[in-house]
Each structure stands twice: as C-alpha cells, then as structure tokens.
Amino acid sequence: MGGTEHLTVQREGATLVLTLNRPEARNALSLPMLVGLHDGWLEADADDSVRSIVFTGAGGSFCSGMDLKALAGNGMAGEEYRDRLKADPDLHWKAMLRHHRPRKPVIAAVEGYCVAGGTEMLQGTDIRVAAESATFGLFEVKRGLFPIGGSTVRLQRQIPRTHALEMLLTGRPYSAREAAAIGLVGHVVPDGTALDKALEIAERINACGPLAVEAVKASVYETAEMTEQDGLAAELTRGWPVFDTADAKEGTRAFAEKRPPVYKRA
C-alpha cells in the first residue's frame, strides 16, 4: 500500500481511503501529496478487491488549494518526487482528477476548508459529503489567477450556470448549506462525522455488484454530453454485457433465496 509523508492510504474493508495529510498547512497541495494521490488512484484502479474510494483530509480540513512553493520542490519535496514530475509532466493533473477518472466510485468527505484547488478536486469526485462548518469556493480571481484545475468547464455541468458563474467570478466563500442548496455537495452532516457518512455510503456501494457499479459509473460519464438518442445507444453497449455475468446471476439468485449476494467480479 502506497502513500507519502503528505498522503496516507488505508483500507477499510473494500474501501480505499486516501487522506491528504498536511494539517499544519490546511492540507495545501504539495508535490509529495500529488505523487501520493496519483499513485493512490492507480492503486485503486488496479486492485479488484477495492470497490470504492473515500477521499478526505486530516486535521479538520479537506484542502486549501495549491502550495506553489511545494509544487516547485523548493526545500520540501525529496529528489524522487521531482523526478516523478519530470518523468510525467501530467502527473499533477491526474492526481487532481483533472486528467484521470478512477473506475471505482469516489466519495469525498469534507471537513473545514475545501477551497481553490480543493473545490477543483471535489468536482472530480462522484458523491460528496460535507461537514456543517465546511467552506467551499474558487478564490483564484481574487488573486488575479485562473482556476485552471477544470472548474470553468466542469462546474457549469454540475450545478446551474448562474451559480457556477457567481462562484467563479466573485471568488467568495460558500458554506456547506449553501453548497448543498446549489447541488455542489449531496450531504451535510455534523462536524467530525463526514468521514463516517462517506464510509457508510461506500459500504452500501461495496455490497453491490462491482461490475455493475463500474459499468453504471462509466455510462453516466460517457453519455453526459451525448444526445439522448446516442446516450441510450451507448447505455445498451455498457449495460447488456452486465446481464451475462456470473455476478448478475448470483444477484438474482441471492434475491430469490433471500440471502446476501456473494459477488466475485465474474
């Protein structure tokens, strides 16, 4: 199991938990963190025993955005991390879920600050849980910068455009309740319980057929920008093969026998 000094990787049953671990900097992104995230996403993809991923932050914050000094490797990251970035100049975008979509469902558990790069990474997750006092926002324009982590493309596809533009153009903070009201997050829970709720959702996903879950996720994303006619055709291409799997037969048999199914990814 991987990880770095700024990114921890743990298993909770069939769930892989990736935790941003730089609490003294409100989990500002660093090169060790990005390398750890990149490797964590790939580990989850490669391990068939992993059925879901929970993405969270340590110390009461999710992520406060990019740490440019750390990204440049000035006195914080070891040579091996700088070598990784040189070997794959796209590594940081994959780590931030801009240029990579894990095939397993990703559930975000947000406490505290989830701003700038934090809100950008959030848009690459599938299901989102926020603690009551969590804070969201894209602050880049206030600093004369551009939210280049994908927000000008993704945000308007995930929430109504008027809310997306207000968030992008004002750079103001949003409370968890406000984020839920505009559809950026799906659950608001008491402080300190976001991870518990995310793991609860993950456990429900883990109890489902893994081939079906992955096919459903893939279908949702690949048809999002299609016409309805093209999307329905693509859905059949994804969906029909699932019915021919041993897992599909096990699911229906278990239902008839009134017992929990035992899925084997077959």
Rank of each mutant, 00 (worst) to 15 (best):
M1D: 03
M1Q: 07
M1L: 13
T4S: 07
T4L: 07
T4G: 08
Q10L: 02
R11N: 03
E12M: 08
T15A: 15
T19M: 03
N21K: 14
N21G: 01
R22L: 08
P23D: 01
P23L: 02
A25F: 08
R26T: 09
A28T: 04
L29K: 05
S30G: 15
L31T: 06
L31S: 05
P32A: 06
L34E: 00
V35S: 09
L42E: 07
D45W: 11
A46V: 02
D47I: 14
D47G: 06
D48V: 12
D48H: 13
S49P: 00
R51E: 06
V54N: 05
F55D: 12
T56K: 01
T56E: 11
G59R: 12
G59C: 00
G59Y: 09
G60K: 10
F62S: 02
G65T: 10
M66Q: 12
D67M: 01
L68Y: 04
G78S: 08
G78M: 08
E80G: 12
Y81M: 14
D83Y: 09
L85D: 06
W93M: 14
H99D: 07
P102T: 04
P102S: 03
P105L: 11
V106N: 13
I107S: 12
A108Y: 04
E111N: 08
E111S: 13
E111V: 10
Y113R: 15
C114R: 08
A116N: 15
G117D: 02
T119M: 02
T119L: 11
E120Q: 15
M121S: 00
G124L: 03
T125K: 11
D126Y: 08
D126A: 03
A134T: 05
F136P: 06
G137L: 03
L138Q: 04
L138E: 02
F139T: 08
R143T: 11
R143L: 14
L145D: 08
L145K: 09
F146M: 07
G149F: 02
S151N: 00
R154V: 00
R154Q: 13
Q156F: 00
R157M: 14
R157W: 15
T162N: 01
T162Y: 01
H163A: 14
G171Y: 14
P173K: 03
Y174V: 05
Y174M: 15
S175C: 08
A179H: 06
A180Q: 15
I182M: 07
I182F: 04
L184Q: 13
V185A: 04
H187W: 11
P190N: 05
D191A: 12
D191R: 13
G192Y: 09
D196R: 11
D196Q: 08
E200W: 09
A202V: 07
C208R: 14
G209D: 15
G209K: 03
P210Y: 11
P210F: 11
L211E: 02
A212M: 11
E214T: 01
A215N: 06
K217S: 03
Y221D: 09
E222Q: 14
T223H: 01
M226D: 09
M226H: 10
D230F: 01
G231R: 02
G231K: 09
L232D: 14
A233C: 03
E235L: 15
E235P: 00
L236D: 06
G239F: 13
P241Y: 02
D244C: 03
D247I: 07
A248F: 09
A248Q: 01
K249V: 14
A254D: 09
A256C: 05
E257T: 05
E257Q: 15
R259S: 12
P260L: 04
K264M: 07
A266N: 09
